[in-house]
Design a binder for these strands. Structure first.
Lengths: 196, 196
DNA sequence: GTACCATATGTCAGAACTGACATAAAGGAT
DNA sequence: ATCCTTTATGTCAGTTCTGACATATGGTAC
């Protein structure tokens, strides 16, 4: 079983979905911490079905093409339950923005500051979006969020990780940009004046 | 040019290194935000040389096998400078631990809490290691850290991102574990007593 | 009428990466 | 002697993922 397989099972444990629906979910909420294109999802569904983790039934529709709706089996649910408590195999972090920071000392300082300000915005916007979702969940799902055996608690938990992550990323970008500009507006005042 | 190519150039812009040295660096400091095995590094070095970004010279050694020491070229340095200020193409986040949290509502609560406590420790230890490095850098490199055109500033900047990341991860793991155990020691007191 | 869009399901070539296999020199341990 | 470890460089098969190609239905916009 691949991790993508468990991502799909995680969605199907909440509701029955078609391959197309799964693709949409992967762009939306679940896509915040796992993502996949339909070109990965359809073959994976076939493998899951072959392994007995899911089954499908064809649903005929009038106003749009027919679809295959997948549901999780008892075996699929059991596999998911067991996988969820196994410590993940530590996978190496790969963050291209941090890699760029590693070479920022060679770069044009003005362009570098602009780039990090831009990334700060990107992460800030994602954070704002998450905070909206959080407010909505806390208002709408109130009691469920205290129950770790509710799927809503689980969804909320993943959102909280997203919030911490984006906050950390945005603050770090701001610190990098400030550090670069702090230096420029200090010792390098003359060069800056000459340029503008 | 691949991202791995820029990771290698980032290291070679600081000092000349052999393929073996690069592999070691990828396990250590640089490995905190980008990593690669030697099976990726040797072919990539060949491609970089073919593209004119690096050159190598063979260094003969007595007490160990001969080695190829690579150095960055002017073209390589220029490519790196330009790449460093281009906003990264947003790549989807994939965090298996968060994916597990998404299905934690189905899991055995006791095992789940244990798993998240374990992950909290792992991140906590990595954080402690980073904090040690940070103290060392701040003591040893003091003045350089205020100069964004120093490679030491760049190294320090990446370390700071690592610290924020691990802190966020560890705190989130603790929150998840607390949430699960908070519930168990409350409403489910009886079940717990029966089990132990 | 035709061009585009959302829904719906699939395949395939190529890139990036992992883990195993392969070779070799020199030193240290048993 | 034999084995293990470190240094050193390489290949290769298989997995995961991306981006493009491919096809089909039915509604809406021009």
């Amino acid at each position: 079983m691949t991790t993508l397989g468990y991502a799909i099972l995680g969605l199907l444990s909440r509701e029955d979905l078609s391959g197309y629906d799964l693709t949409q979910r992967m762009k939306g909420r679940v896509g915040y911490f796992w993502s996949a294109r339909h070109s990965q999802i359809y073959p994976e569904l076939a493998r899951l079905e072959e392994g007995g983790y899911v089954t499908h039934s064809v649903v005929e529709q009038q106003e749009r093409p027919d679809k295959k709706v997948y549901g999780i089996t008892a075996e699929g649910l059991e596999a998911l339950r067991e996988w969820a408590v196994q410590p993940p195999v530590p996978k190496p972090t790969r963050d291209e923005l941090v890699l760029k920071a590693y070479s920022v000392w060679l770069a044009d300082q003005e362009e570098a500051a602009r780039m990090f300000r831009g990334e700060e915005s990107r992460h800030g916007e994602q954070l704002a979006h998450y905070e909206e979702l959080r407010a909505w969940m806390e208002g709408e799902w109130g009691e469920d969020l205290a129950n770790p055996e509710s799927h809503r608690f689980a969804t909320y938990a993943t959102l909280r990780r997203g919030i911490t992550y984006e906050m950390g990323a945005a603050e770090w970008c701001r610190w990098v940009a400030d550090s670069i500009e702090g230096e420029r507006s200090g010792e390098k005042e003359k060069q800056r004046g000459a340029r503008s």
